[in-house]
């Protein structure tokens, strides 16, 4: 699924010990579109930015399993249930690809998990909204994964090799997610009046949070310029958001439901949709931990981690016994 904010966290400072020469050579490699690999020299700030971004992204995938997992036992048909199960499993897989990429930068898996569980690390604000109806599963696939794809496709060309390669894998699978979401919406929209109303209700609730996924406006985005210079990021938050609105509004029209924005108009001159102001206060509140489900999401993750401890212990004990036997 996806990360946002791609650039949340404290201001980065370059360590003074790093020579200008090394920095210049590094930037030259970036400018020449060379990929940076795990053991290559890199500025500490580049490393820290990537660790923060990739781990936030991984955490988002892991927490992102919860809103959808909420409907696994109540999916309307066995087919839908099997599909949703596969999708939730994919989210876990995406989290693992990304943790694996982040580890190449020298941070341990346990450290990242500890930071998530302690609440120190952030994850995408979108997963702090509840999934109150089956239509929300459609809306998540269509909108949330749709927004994720907009963000992630440019990441396949990110300057850091292991992250770029993980994103290629993620993007291939993400496309299934988005289509299955749209198909749920389409089925509802072609159903009874009540079903169509469910789809509209889900769009009403997920539209604005989906737009927030792209992060703050460019004028407010702290790390964007540096991330662009390092080619971690290829497009600005506002550019990607605009692209998302342009394609999604047309899809909503096809579904016959309407985007909950009275200010939405098509601008003939630019060829883009103009949309209303995002409620940034809501965004800040959710990021700060006060969204509808922040506490519940984290508590559930902590509970799952602690509940699984005996399984990890048992596996470790078995492995120790096996290797002791092999040695004897």
């Amino acid at each position: 699924m996806y990360t946002q904010g791609l650039d949340q966290g404290g201001a980065e400072q370059t360590a003074l010990s790093e020579t200008d020469e090394k920095m210049a050579a590094f930037q030259q490699r970036i400018d020449a579109e060379e990929k940076i690999e795990a053991k290559d020299w890199m500025p500490e700030a580049y490393r820290r930015t990537l660790i923060r971004q990739i781990s936030q992204h991984a955490h988002s995938e892991i927490i992102g399993m919860q809103p959808e997992g909420n409907w696994l036992t109540r999916a309307p048909t066995l087919k839908r249930k099997a599909i949703l199960l596969a999708k939730v499993q994919d989210e876990a897989g995406h989290g693992l690809y990304l943790y694996s990429a982040a580890e190449t930068l020298g941070v341990s898996r346990d450290q990242m998990v500890a930071d998530l569980l302690s609440g120190k690390a952030k994850y995408s604000s979108i997963f702090n909204y509840p999934t109150v109806s089956w239509a929300d599963i459609g809306a998540i696939g269509w909108l949330v994964d749709g927004a994720a794809i907009m963000n992630q496709i440019p990441l396949c060309r990110c300057s850091y090799g292991p992250y770029a390669r993980a994103m290629v894998r993620v993007c291939k699978e993400e496309s299934f997610h988005q289509r299955q979401g749209f198909e749920i919406m389409l089925t509802l929209c072609r159903g009874t009046e009540a079903q169509k109303a469910m789809a509209q209700d889900a769009l009403n609730r997920w539209w604005w949070p989906s737009l927030m996924m792209f992060g703050p406006n460019d004028s407010e985005s702290k790390h964007s310029a540096q991330s662009m210079a390092w080619k971690i990021k290829r497009f600005s938050n506002d550019e990607l958001r605009q692209k998302f609105v342009d394609v999604t509004v047309q899809q909503a029209e096809f579904l016959g439901i309407s985007v909950p924005d009275p200010d939405l108009t098509f601008d003939e001159e630019s060829g883009h949709y103009k949309f209303g102001e995002i409620d940034w206060q809501e965004f800040m509140d959710v990021v700060a931990g006060n969204g509808p489900c922040n506490k519940q999401r984290l508590a559930k993750r902590v509970d799952a981690h602690e509940g699984g401890e005996w399984v990890r212990d048992a596996a470790q004990a078995y492995a120790n016994k096996q290797s002791a036997r092999a040695a004897a």
Partner: peptide, 24 residues
């Protein structure tokens, strides 16, 4: 090379690799 996994032992590493990297 596809990526990496953590595992307690070799067999679990194979199983985890299968579940993580070859779902399709």
């Amino acid at each position: 090379h596809a990526g990496s996994v953590h595992a307690a032992d070799d067999q679990m590493a194979l199983d985890n690799a299968r579940d993580t990297y070859t779902r399709r």
